[in-house]
């Protein structure tokens, strides 16, 4: 049940973060990522983007590139919920019983959390602080279920590490 994987992929289709909650071999992962990325990226290119500015967060990173297409794609036995933030795509694979809209909201929460930590987070932040991005994700999702939705609760352990090191 719940979330099967979380992927972050840039516009060129390179994976920037991958977390799976079920076992797949490395080859399967690569194949799956390739297929999904091709499918989702192709969809978003079909239409020009309408820019919708989220009222709460006005800085660049959180300008949502909202396109007319719907954010759900069915692939194999997954449903992929994706959302694009600037040059980065967030893709979450879920199974059938999951609430797609909630996952969409979850992606936004993840981005906001990262944003609070890194301050104006961008693709490079995630690349160079991969472990921190993973920590955050780990505090939020465990074994495919959502653990915590409060940003400060998510970030306390991470700030603790920063303090000690």
């Amino acid at each position: 049940m719940g979330i099967r994987f979380v992927l972050m992929v840039n516009k060129q289709g390179q994976t920037r973060l991958a977390q799976y909650y079920e076992y797949l071999t490395i080859e399967e992962r690569r194949a799956l990522e390739g297929e999904i990325v091709r499918k989702c990226l192709a969809r978003t290119e079909q239409q020009p983007f309408l820019i919708v500015v989220d009222k709460i967060d006005l800085h660049m990173w959180l300008i949502l590139f909202h396109c007319g297409q719907c954010s759900f794609v069915e692939h194999r036995n997954y449903k992929i919920v994706y959302r694009r933030y600037a040059s980065l795509f967030f893709l979450v694979g879920v199974d059938d019983g999951e609430n797609e809209l909630a996952i969409l909201e979850f992606i936004h929460l993840l981005v906001e959390t990262m944003d609070r930590h890194f301050g104006n987070v961008c693709e490079l932040d995630i690349m160079f602080h991969l472990e921190k991005a993973h920590f955050m994700l780990e505090e939020m999702v465990m074994n495919g279920c959502i653990v915590e939705t409060s940003k400060s609760n998510i970030l306390t352990p991470i700030q603790l590490i920063d303090k000690t090191s």
Binding site: C70, F72, E100, L104
Partner: peptide, 8 residues
């Protein structure tokens, strides 16, 4: 108007 909502 939102496609996501129509989808669900």
């Amino acid at each position: 108007r939102d496609n996501n909502i129509r989808y669900v």
